[in-house]
Amino acid sequence: MIELSKAEFEVLDAVWLDYPATASQVIERLSDDKEWHEKTIKTLLSRLVKKGALSFEKQGRLYNYTPCIAREEYTLKESQSFVERFFNGRIAPLVSGFAKSEQLSQNDIDELKKVINDWEKQQK
């Protein structure tokens, strides 16, 4: 799995919004939330290419960046890694912790029930 820093993930997330994307487009997407210098973002784009998270195609003076991994695939692997490291691979203690701290909304609970019900139907 590709290991990304928080900043690298944020840049990759900006590319996932709509790609291929030029460095200028990524800079524009991040400018509302971040006060990063444009050179910082270009450095992060280069790191993501070196790590294999992005590919690029040069068109004249522009580089068009495209993700090499789907957002859903990356977040699933990160989620699995997180649960494995902090909860010994068990999801129940994670959900229980949120429930005990009252951080689960009714919508969250309804979604979890639906996921469990759908999973149980598939097991039959």
Rank of each mutant, 00 (worst) to 15 (best):
L62T: 14
S105V: 02
E8L: 01
K100Y: 05
E35M: 13
L112Y: 03
S31M: 12
K6H: 14
E72P: 04
M1V: 07
S46M: 07
Y74M: 03
E8C: 01
E3Y: 01
P93S: 08
K113W: 04
L76C: 12
S81Q: 14
I27D: 04
W119A: 11
T40S: 03
K42T: 06
Q25V: 15
Y65P: 06
D32N: 09
E73G: 08
L112N: 08
Y74R: 00
T40M: 07
I116A: 05
Q122A: 10
Q25T: 15
T75V: 12
A70K: 12
S31G: 04
Q103A: 13
L30S: 02
I2V: 07
C68H: 05
E10G: 03
P20G: 05
T66Y: 02
R85Y: 07
T43S: 14
K113P: 04
T22S: 13
N88E: 13
A14I: 03
A70S: 15
I27C: 02
K121T: 06
W16I: 08
Y19N: 04
A92T: 13
L30T: 02
S96T: 09
A14K: 02
A14M: 03
P93T: 02
M1G: 13
T66L: 09
K77L: 15
L104W: 01
V11C: 00
A92Q: 09
T43H: 09
S31D: 10
